[in-house]
C-alpha cells in the first residue's frame, strides 16, 4: 500500500484584479489541476517542471500550508485534505518539509538549537530540557553539523550549513514523509552534491519516503525512483526514473532533457536541440485542451480539444497521443 496517494489534487488561488469592487467574485487561478500519483514507503518521487509549473504549490498543499480545493491527499489511508485544522496539526509531525531558500527558512532571531528543537517542543511540550538537548545534538550530528553550534544564529552559517539545519529541523521528529522543495537549487554545485547525498543516506537510514522537487532533471534522476513531469499544474509524463530520463516520450519531457548539458563536448555539440520557444502561458487563462500545445513542436489542430489524453504503457503514463519514445542522447 502506498504511504501517500494523491488523487486528482486541485489547488486554486483567488486573484483579485486591482481596483475591483470588494464584492466582485475573484478570478480563479488553477495552480494545480488534477494531479495524481502514488508514493511507496521508502521511495522517492521526483517532481520536475520549469518555474511556474506548480511544483512548489503541490508541496505546500501536501504539507498543508496551502489549502487543497479539490481531490484527496491520502496519507496512510487518511485524507489530509479533508481534516480540520486541529486534526491536521496532529498529523503534521509525520510530514515535514525542507525549503528552497536555506537562510529564509530559519528565523533570524532564534538560535539554531531552538530552531531544530521547535517541532519537538511543539508536539511534545512535556519533553525535558536535557532530552531536547540530547535529541537536537543527535540529529545535528546526523546531518553533519557540530552539536556545539546550537547557540549560534542562522546568519553565521553558509548556505549549505543552513540547509543542513533545515534538514535537521525536518527530521528531528522522525517523520515518515519528507517533502523537499528544491532543496539544492539555491546552493552551489559542490554543496548540492553533498546535500543530495546526505538526503539519500538519511532516507536509507531512517526509512523515509520522499518527494523531491527540482527544476533540474539531472539532480532529480540521481535521487528519485519515480519521476513526475509537470507543466502548468498538470502531469505531462510520469514513470520510473530511468525510463523517463533515458527514454522520454512526451515532447515536453524531451525538451526538458535536451536542456540538460552533457558533460562531453563532442556529444553535446553533435546532438540536436529542440528549444522550447515562448513563455509559460498564464495559469489564469490556460490553453484549451492540452496545455502544452502552444509551445509544442508536434502540436496538431485536435490538441485544442478537451479530452483525456493519458496513455498508459506499463508503468509509464504520458499525457500525449502523439508521443514517441526517443533516446535521451538523441533528443
Amino acid at each position: 500500500m502506498p504511504i501517500l496517494s494523491v488523487k486528482d489534487l486541485q489547488v486554486t488561488f483567488d486573484v483579485r484584479s486591482a481596483g475591483s469592487w470588494p464584492w466582485t467574485p475573484p478570478r480563479k487561478l488553477h495552480a494545480v489541476g488534477g494531479l495524481s500519483f502514488d508514493l511507496e514507503p521508502g521511495q522517492t518521487v521526483g517532481l520536475v517542471g520549469e518555474s511556474g509549473s506548480g511544483k512548489s504549490t503541490v508541496a505546500r498543499a501536501l504539507v498543508g500550508t496551502v489549502p487543497a480545493s479539490g481531490g484527496q491527499i491520502l496519507f496512510e489511508g487518511q485524507d489530509l485534505a479533508a481534516m480540520s485544522p486541529q486534526e491536521r496539526r496532529r498529523h503534521r509531525k509525520d510530514v515535514q518539509m525542507v525549503f528552497q531558500d536555506p537562510l529564509a527558512a530559519l528565523n533570524p532571531r532564534m538560535t539554531v538549537g531552538d530552531i531544530v528543537a521547535e517541532p519537538l517542543v511543539t508536539h511534545h511540550p512535556e519533553t525535558s530540557r536535557a532530552e531536547v538537548k540530547k535529541r537536537v545534538g543527535d540529529i545535528m550530528e546526523r546531518v553533519g553539523l557540530l552539536p556545539n553550534l546550537v547557540n549560534r544564529y542562522p546568519h553565521e552559517f553558509s548556505g549549505g550549513q543552513c540547509q543542513r539545519i533545515g534538514i535537521a529541523r525536518a527530521l528531528v521528529m522522525k517523520p515518515k514523509l519528507l517533502i523537499c522543495d528544491e532543496p539544492v537549487s539555491a546552493l552551489d554545485v559542490s554543496v548540492q552534491a553533498q546535500v543530495v547525498n546526505l538526503l539519500r543516506d538519511l532516507q536509507r537510514d531512517m526509512g523515509l519516503s520522499m518527494i523531491f522537487i527540482a527544476h533540474d532533471l539531472s539532480v532529480v534522476k540521481h535521487i528519485s525512483d519515480r519521476i513526475v513531469v509537470m507543466y502548468l499544474g498538470r502531469i505531462m509524463e510520469s514513470g520510473p526514473a530511468r525510463e523517463v530520463t533515458l527514454r522520454p516520450r512526451h515532447p515536453y519531457t524531451q525538451a526538458l532533457i535536451s536542456s540538460v548539458p552533457i558533460p562531453d563536448p563532442v556529444l553535446e555539440k553533435a546532438r540536436p536541440r529542440p528549444i522550447l520557444e515562448g513563455e509559460l502561458p498564464s495559469p489564469l487563462s490556460p490553453p484549451s485542451g492540452c496545455v502544452f500545445r502552444t509551445r509544442c513542436p508536434k502540436a496538431k489542430p485536435d490538441c485544442a480539444e478537451p479530452k483525456d489524453r493519458i496513455q498508459r504503457e506499463g508503468e509509464v503514463q504520458v499525457a500525449c497521443p502523439y508521443q514517441e519514445v526517443k533516446d535521451a542522447l538523441a533528443v
Binding site: 505546500r60 504539507v63 498543508g64 500550508t65 496539526r89 496532529r90 503534521r92 509531525k93 510530514v95 515535514q96 518539509m97 525549503f99 528552497q100 531558500d101 529564509a104 527558512a105 530559519l106 528565523n107 533570524p108 521547535e118 517541532p119 511543539t122 508536539h123 533545515g166 529541523r169
Partner: peptide, 17 residues
Amino acid sequence: NKEFVEAAVATGVRPFT
C-alpha cells in the same frame, strides 16, 4: 510570507505561538 513562518505552520505550531 517568509519561509520560516511557513516552516512553523508546516511543523504544526499554533497561530498565536
